[in-house]
Design a protein around this nucleic acid. Structure first.
Length: 298
DNA sequence: TGCAGTGTTGCTTC
DNA sequence: CGAAGCAACACTGC
């Protein structure tokens, strides 16, 4: 979607609401002065293309520079016409926390889009903004040859070359770990988060705490198949807006309407004829939802 | 009212 | 090496 909107536009200016939204190098190093360095390097550049690696959005500029955006829990990128409040301008109600607000666009005026921490002013009167309630999101500039977080990511699960044998080899590097933690380890496989791991394991009929090496081959095959299936479904429905996530046009994704287990604690299992109930436990520090009947623990 | 919970990840400690 | 616990942060819902 951003790849339809951004390429060809020039970055005219960058604004941020707090020092620290811009990070540098590997491992999340924060420093207020990085913002001015970042701004100097990207202003005047033209956006060539946009793509994704794992959970990172990559905005490629000319001269071998790439802006990396990781939205973490509550970040989302929005695109449209925005205005910065001044002495004369009046903001919509509820938008007092940050100075930027969208002009004449109902979807962008969604209350979950209020937390505008970073603004790229683009050519032709449009803006790319980052809304992020919890301020976990991270943005950094990658210059050619620099080491980045991307170097540590596992393969893309939707890549045609990512086959069952590769999957099996990768996850068996952590034979005694719970399967859910392994699926969510970005260094093993890139891009699977908490919601998708729960949904993958429900569909595969395997308990989130199952040890990788104990799971039978046919279960691993099922998990492999369902990773591809559910990530593709997530993309098809334009993401999951259980919480605050919005698409670049400000509109909700629809994957939340297709949850079978995530956040269904205490409700009936939706698998035909199962009759089980959904439980919630903590695995690897994250909430894990599963059916107490048809998800087998190995 | 207080506290658990939250599309995530990195650091510290053991 | 790996696992657990905590930290970053702000808000919602029970």
């Amino acid at each position: 979607m951003l790849n339809d909107l951004l390429p060809g536009r020039k970055i005219l200016d960058v604004w941020s609401s707090y020092g620290g939204v811009i990070h540098r190098g590997k491992n999340h190093i924060k420093n207020k002065k990085y913002f001015s360095q970042f701004r100097k390097k990207v202003v005047g550049e033209k956006i060539e293309s946009v793509n994704r690696r794992g959970k990172n959005v990559l905005i490629h500029l000319n001269k071998n520079k790439t802006i990396l955006v990781h939205m973490k829990m509550t970040g989302h990128l929005l695109f449209g016409k925005y205005q910065k409040a001044g002495a004369e301008t009046k903001k919509p109600e509820g938008w007092e926390k940050e100075p930027w607000f969208p002009i004449k666009n109902k979807a962008l005026q969604d209350p979950f889009n209020r937390f505008i921490r970073l603004v790229f002013t683009l050519s032709n009167g449009k803006h790319l903004v980052l809304s992020d309630v919890r301020k976990f999101a991270k943005v950094c500039l990658i210059e050619k040859g620099e080491k980045t977080d991307l170097d540590d990511l596992g393969p893309e699960p939707l890549d045609k070359n990512f086959n069952f044998e590769i999957f099996k080899t990768i996850i068996l590097h952590r034979p005694n770990s719970p399967i859910k933690s392994v699926l969510m380890d970005q260094g093993l496989i890139a891009g699977i988060g908490n919601i998708y791991s729960d949904e993958i394991l429900w569909l595969s009929g395997i308990h989130p705490e199952s040890r990788v090496s104990k799971a039978p081959e046919e279960k691993l095959k099922l998990i492999f198949k369902n990773i591809k299936l559910l990530l593709a479904k997530g993309i098809k429905f334009k993401g999951d807006s259980t919480s605050d996530y919005r698409n670049p046009d400000g509109i909700r994704g629809a994957f939340q309407y297709h949850h079978k287990v995530y956040q269904r604690k205490g409700e009936k299992c939706l698998k035909k004829g199962c009759g089980g109930k959904i439980s919630r436990i903590v695995v690897g520090g994250r909430s894990a939802h599963f059916c107490d009947r048809h998800q087998k623990k190995y």
